[in-house]
Design a binder for these strands. Structure first.
Lengths: 345, 345
DNA sequence: CTGTTAGCGCATTCAC
DNA sequence: GTGAATGCGCTAACAG
């Protein structure tokens, strides 16, 4: 026992088993082992079997640090998000993950919040891993971030919203259009006294912006607005509604920057005995199809986060499969969104 | 223009700028650059400045693949989760991320769902990146996964629940105890006709188990139970409630495996005009402090996902700081949980 | 405080 | 189908 613990004290390397050990055990050369593991079809079945057995025997675990260094393909994709506490972003992660793992890639996750400078240093760190691709959400990137990305030449997808001048590729939808469409929908239903309840993130701002512009065009007015910390959760929704309704009892519609906030508003409305949507209309945004299950169901704008994630991953994979010779494609994909109207109005 | 495109066609290496280039530009040796970047305090301020300038000049980006290979420290921590579409798990990711990035580590994220075999192959892939530490959620690992982990010797934290024999370290709480405590709480309030609405994930199963055992001990009975696909979302909660209440109108309490499910049940209860908690008690589980903002507020068991994530990360960092010489500590931390009683009962 | 030597573990040429 | 030589970019261990 004493002897054992003495032995284990030595600074034994993490995993002593290398390709060479496997090669010896299998009676072949290292490169053959490498091929057997990475391109089995280039190896005679017999030797393949020998190698596989040797791998099991030795307990070999491939070293992608070394592999990546030698081949300059890390099989890593980085994903940068402001938060994952939002259903849509969680879905986006899920969608991207599914697609990437299926293709043998792994995900490096960066969560940066909504402060630009954090993204900047994170991107720097990420690049040091030499990922084969990067998925960024939003496009509030500083100039130096853009420069860096362009300089390195790693394929980049800007997901979640659309930008006129993507760094490389962009996959998402227009947040301003969302606001626009919501405004028109509510106006058509006859609502006229609007409030906005929004989280303070840039994209929510774009939706709000679109909403306000459209409302103004029709001569109606946004009476009040309340901004909460991003990502707005249900409590902020309810608290925000309290504030808005207390100060402006005449409101007949509240436009929220997320379904979660909308749900909070609904709860408060119910508490006050307001009928939704007769007395008060509430509009959300997101992909929480659960807004169908609230009582009453809420109208909302539906966005498919998983799809955006999957498409983003796929765009990177396509580029990578292309041998890397394809120059920036300026590929822009509008994934669109859907206005879901629920209830009688 | 033609010339340019011809030039860019060449298989130019991803980032030609290496430490050596920086060293030349700064007029020092490569190792000095390395130190200037990684251990600035070991370098004279003057040369440090020269190096930093050279870095900017050349646009150098550090290569952690090479660095990790040479030093066998990847500065990478892997996190394996069944899903991130659960508030608590999202919080866990956030908590771990915060702690890790503060310490200069990056997060490799694996999402495996609830199938054991997926975890097994994912762990294999993860190990090939030579992470400095691994955070696993739950402890339903196959034997070969355990073996592998032990063999490699990478520090491992099993987070989220407690296991009698952790692979290395465990940080979480007892899910059976949660069920136990909920049962006692409800019994004390006088409820007697229970139903269970649970997602089919192992930990939820443990809570359910604890609940049932405690109920049985008191001679009360669990009349019905309904299992939904993990992770249970709000729709499944409402649909589950419909089924349970239709088939068993006599129910006076429903124990849910998550707050989200509980919320769905609440909505259905309200639809039916049931008073909560007078006619029907609903218990949730999770950390959604938003259950305080439902109307009426729901009683629940509160778990701090962010804390668990942060503690797990910290445990790994402690181990790593220890120089790696400390053998498996069998460290087990019970983070506990809290029963939150809301409403008059 | 800084430089020299050596090698981390693998994949990319080519040969055979 | 398989093997031999070379280098990816960096850091450990020593020396000065």
């Amino acid at each position: 026992m004493i002897l054992l613990s003495t032995i284990t004290k030595e600074p034994m390397p993490a995993n002593p088993v290398t390709l060479i050990d496997v090669a010896k055990a299998a009676g072949v050369s290292p490169i053959t082992v490498s091929r057997a593991l990475n391109e089995p079809h280039l190896v005679k079945p017999a030797t393949l079997a020998k190698v596989q057995e040797a791998v099991k025997l030795t307990g070999y675990v491939k070293n992608m640090l070394a592999g990546g260094l030698a081949s300059s393909r890390s099989k890593l994709v980085a994903l940068v998000l402001p938060t994952i506490s939002t259903q849509t972003f969680a879905d986006l992660v899920q969608g991207a993950t599914d697609r990437l793992t299926a293709a043998g890639y792994q995900l490096l996750l960066g969560i940066v919040g909504y402060e630009t400078w954090r993204e900047e240093i994170l991107v720097e760190t990420i690049l040091s891993r030499r990922p084969d691709g990067i998925i960024l959400t939003g496009s509030l990137h500083t100039d130096s971030t853009r420069q860096r990305l362009l300089q390195i030449g790693t394929p980049v997808v800007e997901a979640w919203d659309l930008t006129p001048h993507p760094i490389d590729m962009a996959i998402g939808f227009s947040h301003e259009e969302v606001g626009h469409m919501c405004a028109q929908h509510l106006l058509k239903q006859g609502y006229r006294r609007f409030a906005i309840l929004t989280a303070n993130d840039p994209r929510a701002g774009q939706r709000t912006q679109g909403f306000q512009v459209a409302i103004a065009k029709h001569g109606a007015s946004v009476i009040a607005s309340h901004v909460v910390q991003a990502p707005g959760a249900l409590p902020q929704g309810r608290l925000g509604a309290i504030k808005l309704l207390d100060e402006h009892p005449e409101l007949d519609a509240i436009f929220c920057s997320s379904d979660t906030l909308a749900h909070g508003v609904l709860i408060e409305a119910q508490s006050r005995g307001l009928r939704v949507p007769q007395d008060l209309a509430i509009m959300g945004f997101g992909d929480l199809n659960f807004s169908e299950y609230t009582n009453p169901p809420l109208s909302t704008v539906k966005v498919d986060g998983a799809k955006i994630g999957a498409l983003s991953a796929q765009a990177l994979l396509d580029r990578l499969a292309g041998g890397g010779d394809s120059a920036p494609a300026e590929r822009v994909v509008n994934t669109g969104f859907e206005l879901i109207q629920r209830g009688s109005t």
